[in-house]
Every structure is written in structure tokens, then in C-alpha cells.
Design a protein around this nucleic acid. Structure first.
Length: 491
RNA sequence: CGGGGUGUAGCGCAGCCCGGUUAACGCGCCUGCUUUGGGAGCAGGAGAUCGCAGGUUCGAAUCCUGCCACCCCGACCA
């Protein structure tokens, strides 16, 4: 964000630019609670669009929504060893259930109101859900369970950033139960495809589908699938994950079913989620120094009409025209806002809608009314043109589609321009400084991966699905490798 | 939890080293008039227990002690 206002440009300081933008575009702000954000109405409206779209996609693939408790008994957590180890360090814990008046004013925790068993504020819900599923499943006839939950979770992060990493965040978590391993794997892969489809076709964010290495795998999963996106600064952002959990949670919570053959077996599981972090991905994929840039499919309103007038009479004429236009747009499935506030001048509104990322702006003044035209400005290219009123609806409809695909193509080109292959350690470390995705050989061991991370802060983002096999030598150890994996520094 | 830093109006900050009685400035806010095709101009106005608690002093935003909060850098992470 630049201009006469004191906001950082991407070039100057990418991370400051991000923070400034989130606040300036009215998406969210830091709250009185450390690490927790307030999502403001405009930001929440974008999140709601994401929710609506995803929710429909989940339902189209056979899922239903449910809701499980915020609190999880501590004992549940210890039942799956890898899981507890993964999350233990960042859990908020409820220990008491009552306050009392303190001597000398104020209130304090009542020491007599200590809970018999502490409650964990959910960092994710596998445990409480699998404990519940035990009661839901007896027979193969009870399977599959295809449940999703929209909720908040808490992970006590040391360092937080609006949307990217907050102590509390909103997300959805799907938790499914299946009779066979194959079915569960299919489910995990299917949901990865749903996420990729959503990212690319709605958020206009190109993503790499892949699987995580053992080091990066979800605590308690046998396989973690992910979609990885590249931000403008070349860093990777994990945009969604889908896990094949095997029978780990079924065994931990004793969830068994009787099959057609009369034999008992443990249930197979998946879980998958995306969070408000997608807001961060959206920002860091498309936005520019003038503020937020929204893909039309995500914009709370796709078109804003700004009237320009001097007299009340002019205002009335424009208002009448704008109302007619609004109705036509709605008919055509275009969402529109008529910004008729008389407390702000046109120039102010232009700037405001710009940094809030409204895809298309229409300005109408007396001159336009006389000429039968309007001025149409698009946010992605910052270009303007005069359009005849008669062809406006079709023009805008086409323009919105063009903006949507332009944003995607622009982001895809950026990713391609910043993706490379390297074969030596020196090349690798040099390329890392430039940012981007690096395809390189790795000997397949967690130790090497860990070592590379310590040396360079780069992690293996994923092993792309359908990755080509290729013999080579590990960039660090020189040991044989059968394929290249994707390295990057990540958020 | 280790290292560094900062707390003064809604926001951003000056003043502090060298104590002195109306705590400065910019943005924002309110009122009025003129304005309105890219963040308006002028005039007037409101708004601050100087993070908290002690101490030194005739006098503390300023010096001393303790506490609290937040930010940045690391380890952790969607």
C-alpha cells in the first residue's frame, strides 16, 4: 500500500505490507486477547463466501454437518500417542469452573472450583469425535460416516499473524469413518481434489497437490495429503490438508464394526480441513501495493457503483439510474453495491473500494447521463474504460469472468517463473534466497530432511501427486534418490 | 522460554539524556461555509489519570526501584 499514506509496499517490506493491508482493507484486526484476532464484517463476508462454496462442495460429495464440543477431556488426548505429542505444546487448558470476589476488589479463580479432570480447548477434534463414533458404529451398515464440522479451534502459538497464524482460528474439519482402507484413502484423496478445485476455481490460487513426508505429517496420520500454494514473495503456504488416519484413532478409542463376513475390525478414518488461513493465501496471492485484490467469485460484492454529482437534482437522476442498473445486475447474477453515501466524496470512495479489492467499479456522473455511458474500472489491472449503458450487463459479466481467470493465470505464471530444478547443494542454497519452489533430489530419510531444514530453513513442501520417477543423487548426502521433491521456505 | 525493544489523545509519534507549572505535531473525529470525474480547502472545536505501584524532590512524562503489557528476532506451528 503506497500513495500518500504511510503504508509499506511489497518491495519495501512484504510482511508489513501484509499486516497493513489486512487492517486497511478492513478484514481483521488484533484484539485485546493476545494472538486472537477480530474478523471484521468485510473480512468475515469473504470467509462466509468461502464457507458457502465449500459447504456446497462437501454436501455434493455426500457429507453432512454436525457439531462436537469445544472442550475435550484431558484423558482423551493421551489415547493416541503421536497425536498428543503433536499438540501437547500448544494446548489451552481449562482447570476451574468458577470465579469469586477477591479480597481488595476484582475477581479471582476460586481454588475450590477445580475440575476433577482438566478440559482441553480443542486444537482439533479427532479425539472427541472418535470417542463419539464408538457409540455410532456397530455394523458395516453404520458406515461410512461422512461428517464435517465448522468451528473454531485454539492452538497456543508463540508468534501469531493475522489470518496466517492465530491462537484461535475458524475452520472446518471433516471426520469420516469407513469399512475399508481403500475407501478411506479414496475419501482423503477425493477431499484433496475438492480443496484443489476450490482453491483454483474460486480463490484463483494455483496449488500443488502432493503428499507430506513423515516429518511433516499430521500427528496421528499414516498419510497427509496437502495443497501447497506459492505466495508473491516466493514462500510456500500450506492451504489445506487431508489425512488418511488408518485405524489409529479407531484403535485408540476402540471403534469396531462387524463386517458382512461376521468378523470384527477397526474402522478406517480420514480427517481434512481448511481454515481462515485461506484468507492469508488469498491476500498474498493476488493483492498489490494499492491494497486487496479479490477474485470476483469471492468478493462480497463484485461491482460498486459510485455516483458523481454536484446538485441534488443530479444525485436524484443518478440514483434512479443506479437503482435500475442494480436490478439488472441482480437479474444477471452479479452482486452489486450502490455506494450512495453522501458523507464521502467520489475520490475517497474510489480509493476505498480499491484497497478493499472490489473487482469492478462503475462511476456515473452527469456527463455519463448525457452521453449514455458509464466509466468502468477493473481492480486487477487498474485500467478504466468508457462503456455504453446499453451493453453494460453483458460487458460486466464478461469482465468478471476475465478478471477471475486473469488472476488465476497471473498467479500460475508467477509460480512457474519461480519454480526450478537444482542438482547441487550450492545451487540449492542460492535458489532458496530467491524464493520459490525448488525441485531437488532427496535421499528419502527424515534425518536428511531435518538437516536441510536446520541448515536452510527450507522444508519439503510435498511430494507431488503423479510425480515423475527419476534417478538422481540427494543434494545434501549424495545418496541415491528416485524422485525430486519440492523444497521451499514456508509460512 | 532465550535475546532485543517499546509503553504519552482513536491511530502514528515529539518531549525524557540535562526535572520547572498551557505536554508539541500529523492523521482521524465534531461544527460551519465553500467543494464533489482519484484520498477536498478554510475557520473554529473536542479529545491525555504521560502503562501501573512505590520512592527521591519545593516540583516528576522526565531521575530511582518494582511490577504489568505489548512488539520484534529465535525454537514450535495450519
Amino acid at each position: 500500500m503506497s500513495d500518500k499514506f504511510d503504508y509499506a509496499t511489497r518491495e519495501e517490506n512484504y510482511s508489513k505490507w501484509y499486516n497493513d493491508l489486512v487492517v486497511k482493507a478492513d478484514l481483521a484486526e488484533n484484539s485485546a486477547v493476545r494472538g486472537c484476532m477480530v474478523i471484521k464484517p468485510y473480512g468475515y463476508a469473504i470467509w462466509e463466501k468461502m464457507q458457502q462454496t465449500l459447504d456446497t462442495m462437501f454436501k455434493d460429495t455426500g457429507h453432512v454437518n454436525a457439531y462436537f464440543p469445544l472442550f475435550i477431556p484431558k484423558s482423551f488426548f493421551s489415547k493416541e500417542a503421536a497425536h498428543v505429542e503433536g499438540f501437547a505444546k500448544e494446548c489451552a487448558v481449562v482447570t476451574h469452573y468458577r470465579l469469586r470476589n477477591a479480597e481488595g476488589g476484582g475477581i479471582e479463580v476460586d481454588p475450590d472450583a477445580k475440575l476433577e479432570e482438566e478440559l482441553i480447548v480443542r486444537p482439533t477434534s479427532e479425539t472427541i469425535i472418535w470417542n463419539t463414533y464408538r457409540g455410532w458404529v456397530q455394523s458395516y451398515r453404520d458406515l461410512p460416516i461422512l461428517v464435517n464440522q465448522w468451528c473454531n479451534v485454539v492452538r497456543w502459538e508463540m508468534r501469531t499473524r493475522l489470518f496466517l497464524r492465530t491462537a484461535e482460528f475458524l475452520w472446518q474439519e471433516g471426520h469420516t469413518a469407513h469399512a475399508t482402507s481403500q475407501e478411506a484413502v479414496f475419501e482423503a484423496e477425493q477431499m484433496l481434489d475438492v480443496y484443489a478445485d476450490f482453491a483454483e476455481n474460486f480463490l484463483a490460487i494455483p496449488v500443488l497437490k502432493g503428499i507430506k513426508t513423515a516429518n511433516e505429517r499430521f500427528a496421528g496420520a499414516l498419510e497427509t495429503y496437502c495443497i501447497e500454494a506459492m505466495m508473491q514473495d516466493g514462500k510456500a503456504l500450506q492451504a489445506g490438508t487431508s489425512h488418511f488416519l488408518g485405524q489409529n484413532f479407531a484403535k485408540a478409542f476402540d471403534v469396531k464394526f462387524t463386517g458382512k463376513d461376521g468378523k470384527q475390525d477397526y474402522v478406517w478414518a480420514t480427517s481434512w480441513g481448511v481454515s481462515t488461513r485461506l484468507m492469508g493465501a488469498l491476500i498474498m496471492t493476488h493483492s498489490d501495493d494499492k491494497g486487496l485484490v479479490l477474485p470476483p467469485k469471492l468478493a462480497p460484492f463484485q461491482v460498486v457503483i459510485v455516483p458523481i454529482y454536484k446538485t441534488d437534482e443530479e444525485a436524484d437522476r443518478i440514483s434512479e439510474f443506479a437503482k435500475r442498473l442494480t436490478a439488472e445486475f441482480k437479474q444477471a447474477g452479479i452482486s452489486v453495491k450502490f455506494d450512495n453515501r453522501d458523507t464521502h466524496k467520489p475520490g475517497f470512495k474510489f480509493a476505498e473500494h480499491e484497497y478493499r479489492g472490489v473487482p469492478v467499479r462503475i462511476a456515473v456522473g452527469p456527463r455519463d447521463l448525457d452521453n449514455g455511458t458509464v466509466e468502468v474500472a477493473r481492480r486487477d489491472t487498474l485500467t478504466k474504460e468508457v462503456v455504453a449503458q446499453g451493453e453494460l450487463v453483458s460487458t460486466i459479466k464478461g469482465l468478471l469472468e476475465e478478471i477471475q481467470s486473469n488472476l488465476y493465470n497471473r498467479a500460475l505464471k508467477h509460480r512457474e517463473d519461480n519454480t526450478c530444478k537444482v542438482d547441487t547443494w550450492d545451487e540449492f542454497t542460492a535458489k532458496l534466497e530467491e524464493g520459490g519452489f525448488i525441485y531437488a533430489h532427496w535421499d528419502g530419510t527424515p534425518e536428511t530432511e531435518q538437516k536441510i531444514k536446520e541448515l536452510t530453513k527450507a522444508t519439503i513442501r510435498c511430494i507431488p501427486i503423479g510425480n515423475a520417477k527419476e534417478d538422481g543423487k540427494c543434494i545434501l548426502t549424495g545418496n541415491p534418490s528416485t524422485q525430486r521433491v519440492v523444497f521451499a521456505r514456508a509460512y
